[in-house]
Write a protein that binds this DNA or RNA. Structure first.
Ligand SMILES: [Zn+2]
Ligand SMILES: [Zn+2]
Ligand SMILES: [Zn+2]
Ligand SMILES: [Zn+2]
Lengths: 121, 121
DNA sequence: GCAGAAATGAAAATGATTTTCATTTCTGTG
DNA sequence: CACAGAAATGAAAATCATTTTCATTTCTGC
C-alpha cells in the first residue's frame, strides 16, 4: 500500500460512491494533494486487483470506481435536472441474486438505475 | 434505413451474437462489401437509437453489439468472457415502477444489468 | 552513506470512437 | 432528362480515456 493508493482511497472515502479516474484526480488536486494522473490510474488498477475497489463501466465506456466497502444502493435520477434520490432496493437485490443463481453465475454484481422526470421539473 | 444500416444488420445476422464495430467492419470487408469504418459506427449508433441493436460494454470498455429481437429486456453478462444471457425481468420492472411512483417521477425508464462469472469460465 | 528496488509523473503512444468536410448518391419536381 | 437540394458516405483529423515509456525521485535494508 503506497502513497498513491492511500491518497486514492481517502478521496474515494470522501466521494462516498462512484467516480471516474479523472474525477478522482481533479478532486485530489483541488484538495491540495500532489499526484499525477498516471499514479491515480496505477493505484486504482492495483486496488481493483486487490478487490479493495469496484470497477465498472458507464454506457459511454468510461470506467468508474468505488470503495468495495461503500454501502450498496441505487438511485432515482431526474433526466431533466439531474437530481438524485436514493431508493430502497431489496426487491432488486433479490431479483439479481435469483437470476445469477438460476444461471449459476459466480462473483455476482449488478448495476441498476431508474430515470424519470422529478415532480419539481 | 440506408445502405450502411442494411449491411450492418446483415453481418450481425450472420454473426448471430455480439461483435465489436471493428470486428463487424473487418467481416464486411472480408465478405467483399465496400464500407467505411465511419459508416459502420454511424449505422450501429442509429440502430441502437432505434432499439434494433443492443449495445453493451466489455470489461475493457469496448462496445459490442448484437441484433435485438425482443423489445425491452435485461442481461446477465460474464465479466470474464463477455457471454450474455437474457434474463427474466418482471420483478425488476415492478420494482422500478414502484420506486418511480413512490417518488412521483414521470416518464420513467431504467437500466439494469447483472454481471458475474459464468459457469464455463 | 550507498546500492538496488520501488514509486512517481511528464510526455508520448495507443486505440476506440467521434467529428469534419469534401465528394458522391439519391430524390423529387418540372 | 435535368437539375437543385438533401442525405449518405468515407478518408483523414480530432478526441479522449487509458496505458506505456522512461528518466528522476524516494524508500529500504545493510
Ligand atoms: Zn428534476
Ligand atoms: Zn443493488
Ligand atoms: Zn464466461
Ligand atoms: Zn427493464
Amino acid at each position: 500500500m503506497n502513497k498513491s493508493e492511500l491518497k486514492v482511497i481517502s478521496v474515494l472515502e470522501r466521494v462516498g460512491g462512484f467516480a471516474s479516474a479523472q474525477q478522482l484526480h481533479q478532486l485530489l488536486l483541488r484538495s491540495g494533494e500532489s499526484i499525477g494522473l498516471t499514479s491515480v490510474y496505477r493505484a486504482l488498477q492495483s486496488l481493483v486487483d486487490d478487490k479493495i475497489v469496484d470497477q465498472l463501466r458507464k454506457d459511454d465506456g468510461e470506467a468508474i470506481y468505488r470503495l468495495c466497502g461503500e454501502a450498496h444502493h441505487h438511485h432515482l435520477v431526474c433526466k431533466s435536472c439531474g437530481s438524485t434520490v436514493e431508493i430502497e432496493g431489496s426487491a432488486l437485490e433479490k431479483w439479481a441474486k435469483a437470476m445469477a443463481e438460476e444461471h449459476e453465475y459466480r462473483e455476482v454484481g449488478h448495476l441498476a438505475e431508474v430515470f424519470g422526470i422529478c415532480p419539481s421539473c
